[in-house]
Design a protein around this nucleic acid. Sequence first.
DNA 1: ACCCTAAATTATCTTTTGTTAATCTCCGAA
DNA 2: TTCGGAGATTAACAAAAGATAATTTAGGGT
Lengths: 203, 203
Amino acid sequence: MPDLLTTFQQLKKLYQLSVDLTFKDMQVLIGAAGMRAFAPQEYLMEEGSQSRMVYLIREGLIRTFFVNDKGDEITNSLRWQNQVYTNTDLVLFDRPSRFYVQALEPTKTFTMDYDKLQLIIDRNPKFEKNRKHILLDILKQSLEQSESFILLTPEERYQRFVRNRPDIINRVPGKYIANILGITPVSLSRIRKRIAEKEMGKS
Amino acid sequence: MPDLLTTFQQLKKLYQLSVDLTFKDMQVLIGAAGMRAFAPQEYLMEEGSQSRMVYLIREGLIRTFFVNDKGDEITNSLRWQNQVYTNTDLVLFDRPSRFYVQALEPTKTFTMDYDKLQLIIDRNPKFEKNRKHILLDILKQSLEQSESFILLTPEERYQRFVRNRPDIINRVPGKYIANILGITPVSLSRIRKRIAEKEMGKS
DNA sequence: ACCCTAAATTATCTTTTGTTAATCTCCGAA
DNA sequence: TTCGGAGATTAACAAAAGATAATTTAGGGT
C-alpha cells in the first residue's frame, strides 16, 4: 500500500489545493478509486480509444504519442509521479483518442471513471473550488509549450527542458525528448555536442 | 448599435452554447457590459497590466505580442470577431500580463470586468453549463498549436494556417503570421515562393 | 497624383536542421 | 560471458532557415 498521506500532501502542493481540504476528504476519493499497475511498454490507452478513465500516476512514467503518415511514432508528452492523465480528446473534445499512451517504467496508478469523479466532486462542495486546477494546469503547460516554439530556438528549448526537468532527462530515451522539442534525434545529438563544446570553452 | 441578435446567434454557434440559453438571457449580460472602440494601432492592454477586463470583439481584429530580449516584437496570437480576449496571465495565473494587446483594425468590443462576469454567471444557472466553453476553446487552440509545431514543418504550418483562416490571411501583415508560425518574415516569403512554384508545376 | 514609409521580396552568406546510413555503446537475455 | 538489439553518436550531403542588407511593392495621407 502506498503512503497515502505523503501522496496527498504532494498533490495538495502541486495543484495548490485549498487548505481546508483534508486527508479525510481525499480518502473519499481514494476509496472510490481503483488501482492499476502497468509494466514497461504496456499500453494504458490506444489510438481510437473511447475510454473516459482518469489516471493519477502514483509512481512511474508514461508517454503519449501518435503515429504520423509515414508510420513513425511521435511522442508529444510525458507524465510522471503525481500527474494526471486522461483522454482529453474524448473528455474535452468528444472525439476518440488520437494518441497511444504507454508506460515507460513500472507504473502504478489510481484510476477512476471521469463521470464518476465528476459526481463525487459535485456532491462534495469542498472539492468544487479545486475543480479548475487540473484543467488550468494542462492549459498552462500547453501555453508554455506553444510559447517556447515561438520564442526559442531548438537549442534553447532543450536547455530549458534540462533546466526544468533535470530528474526526467535521464529516465527517458533522448529520441522521445527530441520529438517533444520538435526536432529529430540526430539533431538533438548535435545540440548536445554543441552545448558540451561551449561548456568546455568556458571552464 | 450592432445587430445584437445576430451576434448572439453567432456566439451560440461558435461556442456551442446550450439551446435553452435565450436572447433574453444574453441581454442580461449585455446590459451589464460596457462598450469600447479602438483605433488601429491603439492598445487594449500593455505589458505589466493588471487589468481584469474581458473583451468580446464585436468587430475588428487584434494581436497580442511580447517584446523579447533584443527588443523585437513577437506576435503570438490574433483574435477577431466574436472571439474573447482576456488577460489570462492575471486571470488564470495571477501574474501581470507579459503581453501587449493592440488593435490592427478599427475594433469594437463589449467589455466587462472578469469578477463581475463571474458574479452574473454565478447568479444565473443557465450560464453555468456554458462557463467552461470559452476556457476549453482557448485550451483547444493552444493544444492544436503545440501539436502543429511537433508534427509539421514550417511550410506545412503555413499551409494549414491558410486553409484554416483564409479570411484572416489578407487582413494581417505577413510578419505577424511569420511570428505565429515560429519563423522569420524572410523565411515566410521564401515559403510562399516555394509553394507558388509548386502550384505552377501542377497546372 | 505624388510622396513617404512600412512591408515584402530578393540576394548573399552562414548556420542549423533533415535525411540516410554507418558506427559505436551499452544493457539485458540467453 | 557472449550476443543481439535498441539507442546514441557521427559522417556526409541536401534542404531549409537565420541574419543582414539592398531592392521592390503597395498603401495611406496630404
